[in-house]
Design a protein around this nucleic acid. Structure first.
Lengths: 196, 196
DNA sequence: CTGGCATGTCAACACGTGTTGGCCTACACT
DNA sequence: AGTGTAGGCCAACACGTGTTGACATGCCAG
């Protein structure tokens, strides 16, 4: 049954350990030695299977947002749906944490992050809101990643204190607005008299 | 006038270089040698003035959000006001970038970030919205930092493409809602007509 | 049993890091 | 003038990093 060489097992162990350490320590602090130790093997093995630290990261940071099919959900609940999905997806898979932590200091990781949002979030938004889809997708990314940053990385107490329902209830409407809300009027809200 | 030892000049030069490199490279990649070189002096000087890399960072990451006095502005424009202030403050001072980049991988920096938002944003929110101020401050932080992350660190194209007015027009209402909006209904996952 | 190959280990290299102590230089004061 | 001292530089340290090559071990075919 699906033969599976012996190496595939340890290769997967390395990937799991790599994701864990990249997620908790970021790219530079997650050393190959530590990853190998966590996987219970020799550092040289890591180099054998993934030639580089760079390529190791690339392999470990393969990721799919798995944006759910939104066609079925009522249009006015899409925001909440996305908010719920995001939070589930986020703490069900360490890969996103690894990607986020690494992307802040590592060029390739930032590129990957951009690519993921461009190819996975972008089209999903386009299907729902054909008006200024790129901007809307960017705004959604800003709120979603900001939530992840403050909740999982910085661990701001009030943000970590919220439960899933609270997050959905607060963030959902924001995403809903970014997604289907009207393009905001540029003038009136900003500043009639030029203050500051 | 204002004596000013000779050392104070180079000390300030070191701080400026440190802020710049911490901002662009993060904590671990910003090496003492590179900082010293950028300041045009010897690495040993850095150790003379700031005993540690840790303490160097602490000194360089001293920061004041300078949240403007919101008492004067019309209550329904506070969100836009904050959005505008944030964007001005952010690209007028590299310190925030340094803090953000470092906070993702460095414990002390994350602590500092938490402290800044707790002591500077928290009270400001409390003065305006006494109902659940901590949660509201956390939400504001999530959107503000998410904006900074996607715009200045990850550089997501649609986010960087927006000009100041666009950011204020989109983000302002979100902050306004987090600040003064009603506490959202708890059970909107199913299908209540209660929207926003 | 005997090879051959995949799987794994060991020790080492070259390099960059934070950090240290000794040495030099120039200026301020008497 | 001489001299003490603050400001600055140099060379080196101990250490951790990614990475490499030689060597051991097990497994399966012949």
């Amino acid at each position: 049954m699906t033969k599976g060489r012996r190496s595939d097992a340890t290769k997967e162990a390395i990937l799991a350990a790599a994701r864990e350490l990249f997620a908790s320590d970021g790219y530079e602090r997650a050393t190959i030695r530590a990853i190998a130790a966590s996987a219970g093997i020799d550092p040289a093995m890591v180099m054998r299977y993934f030639e580089n630290k760079e390529k190791l990261f690339a392999a470990a940071a393969e990721f799919d947002l798995r944006i759910p099919d939104l066609a079925g959900t009522p249009p006015d609940q899409i925001g909440a749906r996305i908010a719920g999905h995001v939070i589930d997806r986020w703490d069900g898979d360490e890969t996103l944490m690894a990607l986020l932590r690494a992307a802040v200091t590592h060029q390739a990781a930032a590129d990957r992050m951009r690519e993921i949002f461009a190819t996975q979030l972008g089209p999903a938004v386009l299907a729902i809101a054909p008006d200024e889809p790129a901007t809307r997708a960017g705004l959604i990314a800003s709120q979603v990643l900001g939530l992840a940053l403050t909740r999982y990385v910085l661990r701001l107490p009030p943000v970590t204190a919220m439960d899933r329902d609270g997050v959905v209830a607060w963030i959902g409407p924001t995403l809903q607005n970014y997604l289907t809300g009207p393009r905001p009027t540029a003038g009136p809200e900003a500043a009639p008299p030029e203050i500051r």
